[in-house]
Design a binder for these strands. Structure first.
Lengths: 239, 239
DNA sequence: CGCGGTGTTGAAAATTGTCAATAATTGTGG
DNA sequence: CCACAATTATTGACAATTTTCAACACCGCG
C-alpha cells in the first residue's frame, strides 16, 4: 500500500538520474525526497507560470513537454527553450524572485514542485546537491551558448538540422528511438526558437524530405540519414 | 602600511556592489575577502582561459574588457558575450569542470581569481553568498534570453540599437557617460555577437549616423538621440 | 613612410521574409 | 458520428534584407 510520500519520492523516480544528483548515501537520498513539495498537473495549452509572477519554486518535468517564451511589449514573442521529462524549469526566476518568461505545456504534463528555499537550505548541508544545482545552472548557460551559435552563425538548413539532432539526442537519452520523433510544437514555435519564419521552417522540412534526409508526416519525423544532418551542421567535417 | 591581503580585499573594493553580495555583517565580509586567491593581469589580445582547459576558478573583472567566444570544429566562431568591470567570467566551466569557451582580453585587464571550491565551501556557511551565486547564474541565464530575442527576432538595425543601449546602460551603472562610449571590440566581433557580418555592422552604423542618431568616429560613438534608438528596439512603444 | 589590421562603401547574389491561396488536421457542438 | 470552424501546414511568387566579393580609405605603429 503506497502512501503519498512514497509516491512523490525522488529516490523511487525513474527520472532521478536526469534531475537529481547521483552518488548519494541513503540518508542524503531520504533528505532529497523532501525537496519535492508536491506534483502539479498542467493541461495542454495552459501555463506553469507566467512572466511577472512571483518565483518560489523550480519545476522538474515528470511527463509532458513544455516551451518557455518571452513576449515583448510590442507583441513579438520568442521561444527560449523546449523542456522534456527530467529537465528543470524556472531558473530564470531566481535573480529577481520573479519569473521572466512564460512556461507553457505543449501537451498534458506533470511537474514536481521544488520550493527553492528548500533547495537552498538543503544544499547548504548536502554538498552533492549544492554541486548539482551549480551544474544545472551552468549547463543551462552552456547550452544557451550553443543556441547563440546557431542563431548567430547558421543558415536555416543548419539550424533546423541542429534542432532535430538535439531533440533526438535528448529523446534517446530518455530511451526513445533515435530515428523517430513526434514534434510537440508547431512550425511557428520551432521558427520562433530558431529565428526563422514558420514558412521557412516548413520549406526546410520539405527540402530535407526531397533530399531523402528525413520523412515528414505533419509532426511525425523519421530521420533517414542522420549523418547527412550532422554534416549540414558541421560542413567541414565531411567524412 | 598596506600588505597584500588588504590590497586584494573585496571589502575595500569599489566594485564590490557589482560582484559581491550586499548586506553582509563584518564577520561575513571578512570571510568573503578570502574568496579572492589573487589577482591576475591579462594583456590585450591574450586569453584568460581557453576552451578545454580545466575549470578551477571564477574570475571577476577588475579592469579592462573581455569577450567570450566559441570556435566550432569547422572554424566559425561566435562571440557569446562582452564583460566589463565587476562582471563575472567562467560560469560555463562549472558543469563539466572544464571551460567551454575562450575568454580574451580586448584591452589590458586585471581579474580577481576566485577558486570555485572556496566559493562552494563558503556559500555553504554564508547564506548571502549562496544566494548571490544563485542570482549571478540566474542573471546570466536571463540576459542570454534577451540575446536570443535579439538574434531570433530582430533585424540588423534593431540588434545594433539594442547592443548600443545595453552597453551604455552598463557603462552608466559604472559611472561613465550615457552618451559617449568607446567600443573595445572590432566590427567583426560586434557582428559575431549580433549574428551579422562586419559589413552589415558598418553599414548600420553609417545609417544611424546619417539619420542623426549617433556620431561615429571609428570606435568612438556619441549617442545623439537615445530615444530614437529605443524606439528602434521597441517599435510599438513610440511616445 | 609604408604596412597590416580595421573600417567603409558599392554592386550583385543569395537567403529569407511577406503575402496569398490552398490543403490537411484537429477540435467542437449539434 | 458527422460537419463545420479553427488551427496548422504547405507551396508559390515576389519583395526585402543581408551576404558576398571587391575596391578603397583610414589609423596606429614600427
Amino acid at each position: 500500500m503506497l502512501n503519498e510520500s512514497v509516491k512523490v519520492a525522488c529516490s523511487n523516480c525513474h527520472l532521478r538520474e536526469l534531475c537529481m544528483p547521483v552518488g548519494l548515501n541513503e540518508a542524503e537520498a531520504r533528505r532529497i525526497d523532501e525537496l519535492v513539495a508536491h506534483r502539479r498537473s498542467i493541461k495542454r495549452g495552459s501555463t506553469l507560470f507566467r512572466n511577472g509572477e512571483a518565483f518560489t519554486s523550480l519545476f522538474a518535468v515528470r511527463t509532458g513537454f513544455f516551451k518557455t517564451s518571452l513576449t515583448t511589449e510590442d507583441g513579438r514573442d520568442q521561444v527560449t527553450g523546449f523542456q522534456m521529462a527530467g529537465e528543470i524549469i524556472g531558473l530564470d526566476g531566481i535573480v529577481n524572485e520573479q519569473h521572466t518568461c512564460d512556461a507553457t505545456a505543449l501537451e498534458d504534463a506533470e511537474v514536481c514542485v521544488m520550493p527553492f528555499h528548500r533547495i537552498e537550505d538543503l544544499s547548504r548541508e548536502v554538498g552533492a546537491l549544492q554541486k548539482h544545482v551549480h551544474r544545472m545552472m551552468s549547463r543551462e548557460i552552456v547550452s544557451q551558448h550553443s543556441v547563440m551559435l546557431l542563431l548567430g552563425g547558421m543558415r536555416a538548413q543548419e539550424r533546423l538540422a541542429a534542432f532535430l539532432l538535439n531533440l533526438v539526442q535528448r529523446l534517446q537519452a530518455r530511451g526513445f528511438s533515435s530515428q523517430e520523433l513526434i514534434l510537440r510544437m508547431t512550425r511557428e514555435e520551432i521558427g520562433s526558437y530558431l529565428g526563422m519564419k514558420l514558412e521557412t521552417v516548413s520549406r526546410t522540412f520539405s527540402r530535407f524530405a526531397d533530399e531523402g534526409l528525413i520523412e515528414v508526416k505533419q509532426r511525425n519525423i523519421h530521420i533517414l540519414d542522420d549523418q547527412a544532418l550532422k554534416r549540414l551542421v558541421n560542413p567541414q567535417v565531411c567524412h
